[in-house]
Amino acid sequence: MMERLIRDASKASPAIDFDPVSGVLRMQGESYPENTFEFFRPIMAWLRDYLAQAAAPVSMELELSYLNTGSIKCLMDMFDLLDAHHQEGKAARIVWRYHANNPRALETAEEFAEDLSLPFLIEQHP
């Protein structure tokens, strides 16, 4: 069984809680680490390993208020992995939550959702 992946939020990086038991993969906060790829490498690796053996439905739940360009790239890579998982006939979805005081964040979410075939739910939270 894989270990749960937990990272506390820092000023420049989001809190991460990927739970292999429930299949809920959460990321929350702002993401602009100084070395974005360094930060996301182990997270990507975990996700790749997890998807290779995940039997239960996978739900990636995101609440990200700021993303630097590197983080956008890494997220898209993760979404591609999830999308491939979904195309193999396995249950996977993405839930994108954005804050009501930043309505333009909806546009960003829609842009991410485009070209993906898996369910991409966009929710506003108060």
Binding site: Y66, M76, R104, T108
Partner: peptide, 12 residues
């Protein structure tokens, strides 16, 4: 796509 999203985030 990355550039488009990044520009949007920047604008926000």
């Amino acid at each position: 796509k990355i550039t488009r999203i990044s520009d949007k985030v920047q604008a926000q």
